[in-house]
Simulated assay, not measured.
Amino acid sequence: MSFKISMFSGSTDLDDALTLLAQTAMGLPRDSNRLTLEQAHEHYCSGEGYNQLLRTAERFKIDPETLPERQQLDRLFRDELLSRKALQTHAARNVYNSGKVALWQALWEPFKDKLLPNQTLLQTMAHMTALNTSAAGGDVQTCVDWLLQQLKAMDFSVETLTNKGQAPILFARRAAMGMQGHLVLYGHYDTVKPQPERWDTDPLKLTLKNNRLYGCGIGDNKGALAVRLQTIAGMDKAPALTWIIQGEEEIASPFAHQQFPSLLSGVKATLWLEETGYHDNEGTQRLLARVIGNEQEGDLPPDRALWPLIDSLAQDAALWKVGYRVESRSLNKAFFQNGCPFNKQLPTGARYLAIGINDPRSGIHKPNESIPAWTIRLHQRQLATVFEWINRIAAGE
């Protein structure tokens, strides 16, 4: 698919891009409304706003020389404001003009690849979204075959567990590649039943609107699954990985509850990574980190080894100008009577982490399910941070 904000087509694309950049550069709340061009002009061309723009370029290792000088930027904004005013006066459609193109290229182009997912990842998300993997859907086996192909291309050995009438479980393992330690990942490919009549967009077509990606299952769990597949595929170093992906979470995981106890029995890992995680509406990241205690202890706070990872993840979030908070609990899955089969198998002493791409507006299991586009690049960076921490811990640092 074509990710509209990464291409040039009109005024709303430019305004969305300038809003996303301002949120990252100046720490504007992530749930703030789209900036008007006048507001963007005021933000970027003030002395403090321009300095924040330069500091943002430095944070993301972008050469400040690629950005326009403040006076030049002010002139670009004024040209576009004048152009829009003229078009409104003459009731014309504001689509293409040289001022808009110049502002887009000068201000947005240097940042876009740092802040938005690439086309390969978007195509992966679009492919997964197009498959109806609900319990009554017809694309479960197609999705399993595709996931199997992706995992094998990444040199995973994969065991496919099947049982008549139940969705397959993929149990994938890969030896360490230039790093020490072991990470266990969990995910699922099934979704709730798409209900097109209740959606504003096609639930089986990945759609961008107002800096959010919409599609059935994009928040639970196809979006995060796609991000992790593409990110890990692009890494040349990694700890040992065990990845368990099931297909019945939305119907209470009957097959997983049968199989996970034997699959995960005796597995020892440096870290156990949940299927996804959340940000608050304004951007604050919820870092769910805990150590599994015994039956009497329950969830324990992060141990001494986990805190350096939390600090590093917080530093990653700060690049996007968002804060964080630590909660010593699991991802909320209380709506399943028997609980989460992954969480139920975590051994005493296991270190657990939940980070991801969702926010409260994601509306999982509901019509118009979505994810904020800005969280994707941050999650990719944090996966690399997790890998580096696992390597250090396993090496005894």
Rank of each mutant, 00 (worst) to 15 (best):
K4Q: 15
L20V: 06
A22F: 07
M26R: 12
T36G: 14
Q39V: 14
H43M: 10
G47M: 10
E48F: 12
A57D: 06
E58S: 15
R59H: 13
R59F: 12
T66V: 12
E69D: 13
L76H: 07
E80R: 05
K85P: 14
Q88L: 13
D113W: 07
L116S: 08
L121H: 02
M125H: 01
D139E: 09
T142F: 08
C143I: 08
F156S: 05
S157Q: 15
Y186Q: 08
P194R: 08
K209Y: 09
L213N: 03
G217D: 06
G219V: 02
A226W: 01
A226G: 01
V227F: 05
D236K: 11
P239N: 05
T242S: 05
I244K: 04
E250V: 08
E250F: 01
A256P: 08
F260S: 02
P261N: 10
L263G: 09
S265M: 14
E275F: 01
T276N: 07
E282V: 02
E295N: 13
Q296I: 11
P301W: 01
P301Y: 01
A314P: 11
D316F: 04
L319V: 09
N332V: 12
A334H: 10
N343W: 08
A350L: 09
L353G: 08
N358A: 10
K366A: 14
N368H: 10
E369T: 07
T375K: 06
L378F: 07
H379I: 01
R381S: 12
G396S: 12
